[in-house]
Structure formats: C-alpha cells, structure tokens
C-alpha cells in the first residue's frame, strides 16, 4: 500500500522516512587560528555509532584555542528536525563551550546561523540567553542558550538542537511556509568558537577536558513537500525523492509534464494538492499553465493544450480546426471526431464550414449543408461562376 494514496486511489499527504541524513557522509573540518587548515573526508563522525568502541575526533592543533569548523554537505535539501553532537568526555567540560550551528540552503554558497550555545550568550554572541522565540517574527532567527547541563549518555555527553523547539508556529508546521523554510538545509556546519581569555588563564589546577566529538547526527527527512514517501540514493549517491501525485523534480516541487492544469502546491494533511492533468480530450499530450486563464476560470483550471492533433483546436482541443466540422456520431476524444467540411467546390464560398453544424457558406441560389443543391426556385445553370440560376 502506497502511503501517498488512500486505498480507493485518492491522493493523500505523505512523508518520506525519518532518517539520519548525516549517516555515512564524510565531514570536512577546518581550523582557522593561523590560516585555514583542512581535514576532509572525516568519516568516523557519521558512521554507525558504537558506544563501546568510540572514535573521538578533535582538531589537530588542540581543542582549546582557535576556532574549528565542521561542515557536512547533505547532498540535497532536507527538512531537518534535529542536529545532535555526541562528545567523548563523560563529565561537563571545564572550559566554557561556545558552539554555533549553521545551515546552508544553497549547497554551501551562503550560510545562516540556526542556534548558538554559550554559557555567555550576551558576551559571545550579543544575544540574550533564551530557549523560546518570543514572537513569530523571531522564530527564524538563531537563539542562544546555555548548553549545560548536557544530556549524559552511555559513551559521553550529547548536545541536541531541535529545529522546531521553542518556535511558536511549530504546531502549524504544515501550513507555515516560514518554518518549512527554516528547517530546510542542504548543508550543516558546526562552529566551535575560540574559548574566552578568562578560560585560557584559568588556574592550572583546573581539570582540562578536551572537547572531542564522537558522533554527529542530522535527523530529518528528504524535502519532498508531502508528495513522496520514499527517498532513494541514485547512481551518483545523491538522495532523490520518488515523487507521487504527478509531481516531479528533486524535491517533488514541480508538476510532471502535462499535469499543469493547476499551479504546484505543497501537500498538507488536509489538502494533498496533487498535480492535475490538462484536459485535452486525448488530442494532445502537451500543455502549458496560464495564470491568466486560471484566474479567469475562478482558480479551477489553467492548462492550455498545445499542438492539438486530429484537426482539433482550442484550449482543451475541444473545437475543430477551420475547414473541419464535428462528427457527432463519434465521441469527442475519437481521433476522427473532426471531419473535413466537404463543401461543394462551386456551390460554396470557400472551404470553411461551421465547426459544430458543418454548414458551408453557400452562393446565391445554392442550398444544403455542403452547398451542393440548388435552392427552391433555382435550377442548375451551365456557368461554374453561377451554379444555380433563377
């Protein structure tokens, strides 16, 4: 049973599987105290996490000075629910922690912060320490909070950031474009900031607990806009939505060819918003969407059929071309629904006839659907210019 359809075939809102989007993706690390220094393809942070056999990662030049940055290219758009960092140390670190989580929506070209963690939010980031966005305007801005106390788990401590926690619109996520945008990311970056001066001059008696990471997870779903229940790796290793509801594109964010009678919409639990086929009566398999037509129809139908075949014409290929008339003995979708006018070469003016009745335009004294007879009071003459004479 396909989760994107009811048993009776009606479309329904569907979600792709919730996965660890970071799993198996190599992270890149850079350290920037004295110029950039890169480690790429760090795979131990995103492999299967085994608390009995931890691999701990830290920057080459030491964790307690400078700034190091971990970047995780997810390879496609995901709707991220949480980002978690599992540290190796068992207890709270003695040094202050300042961490920022950022995201990119354009495959690493631009970045925006999602969350800051610091025991000194005001001093480090100029932000108050808060865990809840006060207004809907603030819900797509990074908040800053004290990471402590960190959750303790077997094998270390965990810092988990939930993208929707404390966001006023989160109960209405399916209808909030703002929040849908907020959770969308193609790349995740974690920045471990330089510790404060005070920490560096801490008494040597303080126990230094180097910050070391053992696991990085990004929980979320492929962004398929409610139109796919599956997201699979293609031949190049990229995850792609298996689109339903006649949608297409890597995120099911456009309508499939020919299914453009209405504008594309994201599916919601109450409105699955499938893409709808154009009505071309079987005479065309190409159509385009016209917003003007859509508005004129009362927002019901905006598809305009193109390249109507079988001598048909019109937005739905519902008319016959000039020179052809409807054969009412055949259904409208029949390939011979339009037949030639068959106007008499002398009795009719031109070869055009009424598209629905087939009536040709007759010369004076000529009658009949095809203009092939003389009208009452007229008889056939000999001149082809005046076929019927009084």
């Amino acid at each position: 049973h396909d989760p994107c359809y009811y048993l009776d075939g009606r479309p329904r809102h569907c979600l792709s599987e919730f996965i660890n989007a970071a799993y198996g993706i190599p992270a890149n690390a850079s350290y920037s105290l004295q110029g950039p220094d890169y480690d790429s393809n760090i795979t131990t942070l995103t492999d299967l996490h085994n608390p009995h056999n931890l691999t701990c990662w830290m920057a080459h030049k030491g964790p307690d000075a400078g700034e190091w940055v971990l970047t995780l290219p997810l390879g496609r758009r995901f709707e991220v629910t949480y980002i978690s960092l599992q540290f190796c140390q068992q207890g709270e670190p003695s040094d202050p922690i300042s961490i920022s989580i950022l995201k990119s929506m354009d495959f690493g070209r631009t970045w925006r912060p999602m969350q800051h963690y610091s025991s000194d939010c005001q001093g480090k980031f100029g932000l108050p320490s808060q865990t809840v966005a006060q207004t809907r305007h603030q819900e797509t801005e990074p908040l800053c909070s004290d990471p402590r106390p960190l959750q303790k788990q077997r094998g270390g401590m965990v810092l988990a950031f939930s993208t929707l926690d404390g966001r006023p619109s989160s109960p209405d996520f399916d209808h909030s474009h703002t929040l849908q945008d907020w959770v969308t990311a193609t790349d995740i970056r974690v920045v471990f900031h330089q510790v404060s001066i005070e920490a560096k001059v801490a008494p040597p008696s303080a126990v230094r607990a180097p910050l070391a990471l053992s696991d990085l997870q990004v929980g979320g779903r492929c962004k398929c806009n409610g139109h796919a229940s599956r997201c699979r790796r293609d031949d190049t290793g990229q995850a792609v939505c298996i689109c339903e509801h006649h949608t297409a594109g890597p995120d099911c964010d456009v309508c499939e060819d020919f299914y453009c009678d209405r504008p594309w919409h994201r599916a919601t639990p109450t409105h699955p918003n499938p893409c709808v086929a154009c009505e071309c009566n079987g005479h065309s398999n190409k159509c385009r969407f016209s917003m003007e037509v859509f508005q004129q129809s009362g927002r019901r139908s905006g598809g305009v059929c193109q390249k109507c075949r079988h001598h048909t014409a019109g937005r739905h290929c519902q008319y016959c071309q000039n020179g052809y008339t409807r054969d009412n003995s055949k259904p409208q979708n029949h390939r011979k629904a339009c037949q030639p006018c068959q106007c008499h070469p002398l009795g009719a003016v031109g070869r055009w006839c009424n598209q629905t009745s087939g009536q040709c335009l007759c010369r004076e004294g000529v009658t009949g659907l095809r203009c092939n007879r003389c009208a009452p009071g007229y008889k056939q003459g000999k001149s082809p210019l005046r076929p019927c004479i009084r």
Binding site: L346, V366, T367, G368, R373, K382, S383, P384
Partner: peptide
C-alpha cells in the same frame, strides 16, 4: 422536395478550365 445535387458534368467548362476540379 429533394433538390438534385449539382451535376459537375452539366457545367460548361470552356472558359473556366482553371476552375474545373480535378476529379470531374
């Protein structure tokens, strides 16, 4: 009254050969 259809053979095509349909 059903009027007979125009009989192409009855027309005098002498001066109108260019108008004469191919199949008449």
């Amino acid at each position: 009254e059903v009027m007979p259809t125009l009989d192409m053979a009855l027309f005098d095509w002498t001066d109108y050969e260019d108008m004469k349909p191919v199949d008449t």
